[in-house]
């Protein structure tokens, strides 16, 4: 049986080197613009950076995937099409796309380029996945974080392309690529600008002894002194429904599906993905190394090592998320 492929994030060349050195099988990254869903200030790769990244990774037999996973702007397809062209030219091993128009372009213009379907396309069922395969020759689908492991197993029994699932990191409780919460509060969206709850619209302000986070002027959370903080994303905020403040959508927490490795293997999942292109290289080195150790042990049939990743996760808490039915 083939071992899992470990797919790791990189927000810049140093992070890519950290991921490669820590044992990634593939690294995914984006260009420095709105063509990818982590379009954050100071992050991502120039064309020159990508060339260097591919050279570094390929020399160590590690693959590079380029995420071009936002939805191209009407009347301005150029930046997205050029991103696909440049990824192909610079010998990326795959591009990760979400928009059907862009998939059609890539399939037509670069028939040899390996296409992966981004989680942002939110393809959650057999029928949708087969359509992406038949229409564009998509070879792998990154599954949206709405399915339980048994559902993934049934899905894999019915499709003949590879599946990749998130196992670690930040977690959207909403179906990805189908969420306008950020643009509702700020005018900037994951689908269009590649940003969710953009830093430009985030403010932290002390309120008494507490720390308030606001997004577009809306109060998203209040952290008491000594309480762990989270990202200022709307879906991880505290709100009032009724009279009690509560994490209505999701607590500040991180996905960690390491305990589910046997089930994911039985479900015939091909690749495991770590979230966090926006995180520092220290996070990437630590998490990738931890997962590398776990996957190596798992492949040899050994007990999984105990790994303490609490220090790097949001809210200091971890969850198996949608993979278990109780999450719903």
């Amino acid at each position: 049986m083939e071992p899992f492929e470990l797919i790791c994030p990189a927000g810049n060349p140093a992070a890519l080197r950290a991921a490669v050195d820590a044992g990634a099988d593939a690294v995914y990254l984006g260009f420095r613009d709105e063509t990818n869903a982590r379009n954050f200030p100071g992050l991502n790769f120039s064309r020159e950076d990508l060339a260097g990244a591919v050279a570094y990774a390929h020399a160590r037999r590690v693959q590079v995937f380029v995420a071009i996973n936002t939805y191209p702007q009407a009347g301005n397809l150029g930046p997205w099409e050029r991103a696909v062209d440049d990824a192909a030219r610079l010998k990326a091993d795959a591009v990760i796309l979400a928009d059907v128009g862009l998939l059609a372009y890539a399939a037509r213009r670069h028939p040899d380029l390996r296409l992966h379907l981004s989680v942002q396309a939110s393809a959650a069922n057999v029928e949708a996945i087969r359509l992406y395969r038949d229409a564009f020759g998509v070879r792998r689908v990154v599954l949206p974080r709405v399915l339980t492991v048994p559902e993934i197993a049934r899905l894999n029994a019915e499709i003949d392309i590879e599946t990749e699932v998130f196992v670690f990191g930040g977690m959207c409780p909403m179906a990805e690529g189908r969420c306008s919460l950020s643009s509702y509060a700020t005018g900037l969206s994951p689908n269009r600008q590649g940003v969710c709850s953009p830093a430009s619209h985030v403010r932290y302000e002390p309120r008494g002894t507490a720390l308030a986070s606001t997004l577009g002027g809306f109060t998203i959370n209040l952290f008491e002194e000594g309480e762990q903080a989270g990202y200022p994303t709307l879906c991880k905020g505290r709100f009032l429904s009724g009279d009690r403040p509560a994490y209505l959508f999701e607590e500040p927490t991180s996905l960690n599906a390491m305990e589910l490795l046997p089930e994911l293997k039985a479900a015939k999942v091909r690749a495991l993905k770590i979230e966090g292109r926006q995180r520092g290289k220290a996070y990437i080195a630590a998490v990738v190394a931890a997962y590398r150790r776990a996957l190596d042990a798992f492949a040899k049939g050994q007990a999984l090592p105990t790994l303490n990743l609490d220090a790097v996760v949001e809210g200091g808490a971890q969850t198996t998320g949608a993979y278990k039915r109780a999450w719903r």
Partner: peptide, 17 residues
């Protein structure tokens, strides 16, 4: 880059304004 800024922030060791 020895430590992850987000993690520092989550743990409230870093304050930003």
């Amino acid at each position: 880059g020895r430590i992850d800024g987000d993690a520092l922030f989550f743990r409230r060791e870093l304050a930003i304004e």
